[in-house]
């Protein structure tokens, strides 16, 4: 029933009079309740669907209003499962304390107070650069510990200050050269004939041991992949060995 019909004054006319006025009223109703626009029609369909199936999205504010009206008029009971979930969801006193600790640590921005995982996340996500001074100190420390520098060649002036006689000097030089030559030849012999001190390098080898069982026809790629994998592994091992990091 429309508003206009509800507001109609109770005059109580006779049936024939009423029948005669019907077309007039329809005309007037059409004027006051014009047909819905396309937008209104769409919105009304959305509202209809949403009322039939509240889980469907689309009615937006209209459905919110409907829900609040229903909730005020006839509030539904809380589902027991949902309630249990909410109770489970309540933080314990311990959780609240730990959450407060975490908040303080994050607010304080002190590295020593930052939890381990938070520090790990930040380090991976946005690592902070090392300070130049600190880095210089680390480099300095590493170099200090290194027994790296070889003895510098003595300057001529320094040698002359303690120079023995020329003949003795020549004899000493000849002896030293002979000893050095002998030592060098021994070193060459050792390094070429004996096993190397460094990690041994992988040698070229047959691919036969890679295949315990025959490949089926059409598995050529798999066969080549296996060989390539083995070769790559050898290559890496050799590189590690040569670089001295194996």
């Amino acid at each position: 029933m429309s508003d206009r019909e509800e507001r109609r004054p109770p005059r109580g006319p006779s049936e024939p009079e009423e029948a005669a006025r019907e077309p007039e009223r329809d005309l007037a109703r059409d004027e006051l309740d014009p047909p819905p626009s396309a937008e209104e029609a769409l919105a009304s369909r959305r509202l209809r669907d949403a009322l039939e199936d509240p889980s469907s999205a689309g009615a937006g504010e209209d459905l919110d209003l409907v829900s609040s009206l229903r909730a005020a008029w006839s509030p539904g009971a809380l589902d027991e499962g949902v309630h249990a979930e909410m109770l489970d969801d309540l933080p314990t006193a311990e959780e609240i304390a730990l959450a407060a600790e975490l908040r303080e640590a994050l607010d304080a921005a002190r590295p020593e107070a930052t939890p381990e995982l938070v520090a790990a996340l930040r380090s991976a996500w946005n690592p902070t650069p090392l300070g130049a001074d600190e880095h210089r100190a680390i480099v300095g420390l590493a170099l200090e510990k290194a027994p790296l520098e070889k003895a510098a060649p003595a300057r001529q002036g320094a040698v002359l200050a303690f120079a023995p006689r020329a003949r003795t000097m020549r004899l000493a030089a000849v002896s030293a050269t002979t000893v050095l030559a002998l030592a060098a030849s021994v070193v060459v012999w050792l390094t070429t004939a004996g096993p190397r001190a460094e990690a041994p390098l992988a040698r070229a080898r047959s691919t036969q041991p890679l295949f315990g069982e025959p490949f089926k026809p059409g598995e050529t790629s798999a066969r080549i992949d296996r060989i390539a994998l083995a070769r790559a592994s050898d290559y890496r091992d050799n590189r590690f060995a040569k670089w001295g990091v194996r």
């Binding site: 590295p111 381990e116 520090a119 790990a120 380090s123 991976a124 690592p127 902070t128 650069p129 090392l130 130049a132 880095h135 680390i138 480099v139």
Partner: peptide
């Protein structure tokens, strides 16, 4: 090379300064 090594390799992998 050290600063880049620290920032891109070591710190992200080890998780703390």
């Amino acid at each position: 090379h050290g600063p880049g090594l620290y920032r891109s390799v070591l710190l992200p992998r080890l998780g703390n300064e």
